[in-house]
């Protein structure tokens, strides 16, 4: 099943507002240290990179390792300067990719 994610971006903001952005992704963030039921190590597989672009410009990037909890969640901030779209992209060690987008209307 594809990676399921939830994102939270305010629908609207005033120009200059600093808005909180939240993202949560369903992913085991396998450390590579955990054994399976047969005692074999499960291969490390974590979401290693997540980016957030705001109207095409990268405004946030997370490079993550096995020290990030399973089903990773992140909150960061962005200054609202114009109406447009946020695009989130991420990839895990196995090469599987995920993407989500959200629109923001900026007034003032």
């Amino acid at each position: 099943m594809s990676m399921l994610a939830r994102i939270q971006v305010p629908a609207q903001a005033r120009r200059g507002d600093i808005i909180p952005i939240r993202i949560a992704i369903q992913h085991p963030m396998e450390t590579g240290y955990r054994p399976d039921n047969f005692g074999r190590r499960i291969t490390k597989n974590v979401i290693n990179t997540l980016t957030c672009r705001y109207n095409g410009v990268e405004v946030f990037r997370a490079e993550m390792g096995s020290g990030v909890s399973a089903n990773p969640q992140l909150q960061f901030y962005v200054r609202a300067d114009s109406s447009g779209e946020f695009v989130f992209d991420w990839v895990d060690d196995s090469g599987e990719r995920g993407s989500e987008r959200a629109a923001l209307a900026v007034s003032g």
Binding site: L4, R6, Q8, A24, Q26, A70, N71, Q73
Partner: peptide, 10 residues
């Protein structure tokens, strides 16, 4: 939002 169980609900 933070409750990871909501990912399963979703």
């Amino acid at each position: 939002f933070g409750n990871p169980g909501m990912l399963w609900v979703a």
